[in-house]
C-alpha cells in the first residue's frame, strides 16, 4: 500500500511487464494441458496403436462424447452451480425425440424440435426451482435426476412396451438428421465423426461467450460472488436460469447424437455420466466453488478422460484393472494440474 501512496499518478510502466509466458501460465486450463501431455506421452510409450493416425479419430470421438456436455457443465460450474441431471437428461432428450416421432408417425425432425422444447423447459425448470427455493443446486438437480431417470424408464415402457425406444431408422428425415447429428467423413487417413467437429465449434463458441462477451463477465461474477454481482446490477437469476437452459440445450444435442447414432435409445442409459462431465470440467481447471474455470479446460479434461479410457484398451492391459487404471490416471492428471496451477499462482 505504501507504494501506491507515493506512486506518481502518471502511466505506470509496470503494466506491460508481465511476459506472455507468465500470462499463459496463469490461465486456468494450463495445468490440465500439462496433464494431457503427460497422459499422451505415457500412452504413446506403452500403447503402440496410440501412435497410429487412424486411432486418433476414435480417441477424439470418445472425448467428444464427454466434451460436448462438458462445455455447458463447465459454464454452469463457473456460474457457481451443479447439474446432476445432465447425464440422464441426454437420454431423456433422445427418448423424447425417438418416441414422439414414432408414436405420432411424424417426420423425425418434428421429434427433434419437440425434444428441444422439452429440454429447454427442463433446464428452465431446474433454474427456476433453484432460484425460487434458494436450495443448493446439488439437491434440486438430484431431485430432477431421479425424476428424469424414472420418467425415462416409465414413459418408455408405457409407450413402446419395452425398455428402449422403437427404431426410427426407416422414417422420413432420418438420414438428414443423421447427417447433422451422427455422420462421419474421411480426412486423409482419419475417420472423423461429425460430433468431433461440433465439439470444436461448441468449445470455441463457449470460450468466446465466456471471455469476450458481457454475459461471460456476468457468468464469472454470479459464480464468484452472487451478492456482489446483484449489487452492481447483474441480473443474477436470469444468468443462472440461462445457464441451466444451456445445459438443457446441449443435453438435447447430445441426445440427438445418441438417437441418430443407433436409431434407438436404451432408457436406462446416462446414469453416472453427469459426474464424468463434472470431472472433465474440474480436471480442466473449474473450481468446485464457482467463479473460476475455462471451457477450453473442460475440453482438455474430456480429452484426458477419452485418452485414458481408450489408452487402457490400446495398451492391451488386463481388462479387470481397467477402472483402477482410469482412476490412477485421472488422479495423476489432477495432481499435475494442481501443481502447475500452484506454481503459476506464485509468479
Amino acid at each position: 500500500m505504501a507504494s501506491t501512496l507515493t506512486a506518481p499518478p502518471t502511466v505506470d510502466d509496470r503494466v506491460s511487464s508481465r511476459s506472455l509466458g507468465a500470462r499463459l501460465l496463469s490461465r486456468p486450463e494450463v495445468g490440465s494441458l500439462v496433464g494431457a501431455v503427460v497422459v499422451l506421452v505415457f500412452f504413446l510409450i506403452v500403447a503402440p496403436p496410440f501412435r497410429e493416425l487412424a486411432t486418433t479419430g476414435t480417441i477424439l470421438y470418445q472425448s467428444a462424447l464427454i466434451g460436448v456436455m462438458a462445455v455447458p457443465v463447465a459454464l454452469l460450474m463457473i456460474g457457481g452451480e451443479f447439474d446432476l441431471s445432465a447425464g440422464v437428461a441426454v437420454t431423456t432428450a433422445g427418448l423424447t425425440a425417438g418416441l414422439f416421432s414414432y408414436q405420432f408417425s411424424t417426420n423425425v425432425w418434428v421429434g427433434v424440435a419437440v425434444s428441444l422444447v422439452v429440454m429447454i423447459c427442463i433446464g428452465a425448470f431446474n433454474g427456476w426451482l433453484l432460484m425460487r427455493t434458494g436450495l443448493p443446486s446439488f439437491l434440486v438437480t438430484l431431485g430432477t435426476f431421479f425424476i428424469l431417470q424414472g420418467l425415462n424408464l416409465g414413459v418408455t415402457r408405457v409407450l413402446s412396451g419395452t425398455v428402449s425406444s422403437n427404431s426410427i431408422s426407416d422414417m422420413d428425415g432420418f438420414s438428414s438428421a443423421q447427417a447433422v447429428f451422427a455422420s462421419e467423413f474421411k480426412l486423409g487417413p482419419l475417420n472423423v465423426k461429425i460430433l468431433v467437429v461440433w465439439w470444436i465449434v461448441f468449445v470455441a463458441l463457449g470460450t468466446w461467450v465466456l471471455l469476450k462477451t458481457k454475459v461471460g463477465n456476468w457468468i464469472f461474477a454470479v459464480g464468484g460472488d452472487a451478492a456482489a454481482a446483484r449489487a452492481v446490477g447483474v441480473p443474477v437469476k436470469r444468468v443462472k436460469i440461462g445457464l441451466f437452459i444451456t445445459v438443457g440445450v446441449f443435453a438435447w444435442f447430445s441426445g440427438m447424437h445418441l438417437l441418430f447414432n443407433q436409431a434407438v435409445v436404451q432408457s436406462g442409459e446416462g446414469v453416472g455420466k453427469e459426474f464424468i462431465y463434472i470431472i472433465a470440467a474440474v480436471v480442466g481447471g473449474c473450481l468446485l466453488t464457482g467463479g473460476y474455470g475455462s471451457v477450453v479446460g473442460s475440453a482438455i479434461g474430456a480429452l484426458i478422460f477419452g485418452m485414458t479410457q481408450l489408452g487402457v484398451v490400446y495398451a492391451g492391459w488386463n481388462a479387470d484393472w481397467f477402472k483402477a487404471f482410469l482412476g490412477v490416471m485421472l488422479l495423476l492428471a489432477t495432481i499435475v494440474n494442481l501443481a502447475v496451477k500452484r506454481r503459476a499462482d506464485l509468479r
Partner: peptide, 24 residues
C-alpha cells in the same frame, strides 16, 4: 461488491460492460 476471482478491469466494469456488436 467485487468478485474476488475476477480481474481488476472485469470487476471495474461489472454490470456496465462496454459492448460492441453481439454483446462482445
Amino acid at each position: 461488491a467485487l468478485a474476488p476471482l475476477m480481474s481488476v478491469w472485469r470487476n471495474f466494469f461489472l454490470g456496465n460492460e462496454i459492448t460492441k456488436a453481439l454483446g462482445t
